[in-house]
Design a protein around this nucleic acid. Structure first.
Lengths: 203, 203
DNA sequence: CGAATTACCGTACTTCAGTACAGTAGCGAG
DNA sequence: CTCGCTACTGTACTGAAGTACGGTAATTCG
């Protein structure tokens, strides 16, 4: 049996069900589990480490774990991976995505999702003292002044505030903002801030 | 063409060659590159960020990058991933491993190798341990519905889009957004998104 | 020199966000 | 049963964001 789905209360995930129609679902405290990939739906407050540790003796040493979370967050992802999981993704993900995850982890890969990855990396990179000349992807298309405005927008400033900060008219701020939206393909300043802050938009 | 192998001096990798006999190899500074997976053999002293940034405009935005290193190290791995690579592995790896890496990254996965992964995690985990009260701080003040709206706003959706997503009227979305701004002390939805996305506040 | 780029500013306009001030309805606690 | 909380909706309004025209001045580059 390749895939098994486990949850605490035998809750079912429709997306998962349709991704792997032939697979089995069960409860966490069940008898020995044998599968290539074991999917775990954990409640938000649960500690992945404890659960994985309790489960490990009842499973084959070479099965691969994927933790599903309804509200993924960085900390839990780290905890899950540290506890031996090789995948961490949103429980509401589309069936196609889940199948992709399966392919990846079965082949020895690691899946933590694009969104988590970015945040994860930005945090880590800063903490490790890496020089932050990294996300220059957006930077090199922009002029110096546009970068000033971009930073201010990304920090949540209004046009009026930016105008005061840079000592230019509000009209000129709008001018630069429009250029930024155009160059970076954003619809409004919020999406602009997501791009600049490295938060990818969802599909 | 699915795989392309690039290096600075047209050096060849036998392992890679036999993993993908049909694929093409070339030099870094070549004309536009189009491939699903682009393999990059970088010298130890090179900065992955610089090279990837220089290369990015000449490639399709949805190609996946794998950086090969003769002497893999944690810092370079981080730099490569931060610069947009989705794989980092030893250039001397066996063909079977390389094919596995290809499968993983083509399916949207991330490959950084078992050894690096463990070191990586232990470092990160320790560093992140301290500062963790922030992410769920906003969650427990909010009702279930407010959290739905909060997530959508943070992702950059407009009121109209959220209304469609949640199947409620635009007016109700505004209602929830106002409650969110009040509860979380944000001035507008941009600041709200910064709070929810965990982007630190500056002046 | 002309052309392109950058930075700057103005008025007028449309669209959206957010608030004010209403209201209905369900549900659980005291 | 009333009180409080939550979810939902409506109309009307203000102000901000963003666009569409317009313009001047300085710089670099072929």
């Amino acid at each position: 049996m390749r895939q098994v789905f486990l949850s605490i209360d035998a809750r079912q995930r429709d997306a998962w069900r349709s991704a792997f129609p032939a697979a089995r679902a069960g409860r966490l405290d069940e008898a020995p589990v044998d599968a290539a990939v074991i999917w775990l739906l954990l409640p938000a407050e649960a500690n992945p480490a404890t659960i994985l540790d309790r489960l490990r003796p009842r499973t084959s040493p070479d099965s691969r774990w994927v933790v599903l979370a309804d509200e993924p967050d960085e900390e839990t992802a780290l905890a899950a991976l540290a506890a031996g999981a090789v995948g961490y993704c949103n429980g509401q993900a589309a069936p196609e995505v889940l199948q992709q995850v399966a392919t990846v982890v079965e082949n020895g890969g690691l899946w933590i999702g694009q969104k988590l990855m970015t945040r994860f990396l930005s945090t880590t990179h800063g903490l490790l003292g890496g020089r932050q000349a990294n996300h220059s992807a957006w930077r090199d298309t922009l002029t110096a002044r546009e970068q000033d405005v971009a930073r201010a927008v990304a920090a949540g400033a209004s046009n009026k505030e930016i105008a005061r900060q840079l000592e230019i008219s509000e009209r000129t701020v709008k001018f630069h903002v429009s250029a930024l939206l155009d160059k970076l393909g954003a619809r409004d300043r919020l999406q602009l801030s997501l791009i600049i802050n490295g938060v990818p938009r969802n599909a």
